[in-house]
Design a protein around this nucleic acid. Structure first.
Lengths: 159, 159
DNA sequence: GCGACATTGACTTATTCTGACCAAACCCAT
DNA sequence: ATGGGTTTGGTCAGAATAAGTCAATGTCGC
């Protein structure tokens, strides 16, 4: 039998499916009551399932009229996905290769110019940190770049 | 059911939208009457929603023909926006504040949802690295987040 | 029995709403 | 012109509400 976490995850996904809504507003208190669990269980479900890495944004507000809002992002044109990001990026990647890859994705309209810029800036900053603050080897730096790049691309390209 | 605060906020925003006005004059008393609340609720709405951080200025006058005027700041020049963001982020910023800031920037159409997602992923990755690999103090991590966030936002806001 | 994932609850933090009291600007009678 | 009454907005603190954090504990597959 599935875990409570799974059941609650399903429930939230179902709410999102309804009418293809792009977001749902939840009440942590009510959800916890409905599923007979402690409220912080809901935080666990969200923390482990509805992460930005998986294409979700979460907003919340405490206090009176509080809520948890889950926003699902999806591609406008699913056929324009870049599959095989793992292969494209690999385990290690140079800045040169990153630039080429990003240019290509932009060319194919998978990324906008601004998105590409964000990715380049994020990677450049990480490069600087790893080099100047932590004195990592070039190999380690390229491995970290590969990891960061994959996460970034997966989050917005593989929706 | 949205909160009263939210409803009043919407109402004021709508008044601003009309004809793209850059400011509105309100009567605290009348507003409170219309929405069936105590007058100081209006102050709360303004204090919490129409702040300089969100790009508003507020003037008011007591007595006889008193009023509250809400002015929406228009940052046309990219350089202005960049400075604004510089201030918003500061030298140190918590993840909580980052999330609120990004939601706000999206609300103001300064960011798209996808861009917001990319930024969240980049920051989360840095957080993970700084915590797990380099064991940095919370303060240092927040300082690095501020730096990364500023660079990311500056890069695309200047376009 | 180990490790990852799941569950719990005590404690913390944030937001909304209200009402009592304060301060300023106006207006009119003198 | 002036001073007190009226009109209008401002401040602050407290009660109620609801979400977040974190660390301890439990569970299940290997």
């Amino acid at each position: 039998m599935p875990s409570l976490t799974r059941i609650i995850e399903r429930h939230i996904q179902e709410l999102l499916e309804r009418n293809g809504e792009e977001s749902v507003f939840l009440s942590r208190k009510d959800l916890a009551e409905r599923f007979g669990c402690v409220p912080s269980q809901i935080n666990y479900v969200i923390r482990s399932r509805f992460t930005p890495e998986r294409g979700f944004l979460v907003e919340s507000q405490r206090g009176g009229h509080g809520y948890i809002r889950i926003i699902r992002l999806r591609m406008k044109k699913p056929e324009e996905r870049a599959n095989h990001i793992e292969e494209l990026v690999g385990d290690v990647i140079s800045e040169q290769e990153i630039k080429k890859l990003l240019a290509n994705l932009q060319e194919r309209k998978i990324l906008t110019a601004r998105e590409r810029l964000l990715i380049e800036v994020a990677i450049r900053f990480q490069e600087q940190l790893c080099r100047e603050m932590f004195d990592l080897s070039p190999f380690k730096r390229e491995a970290l770049h590969a990891e960061l790049l994959k996460r970034l691309l997966r989050s917005i390209v593989l929706l």
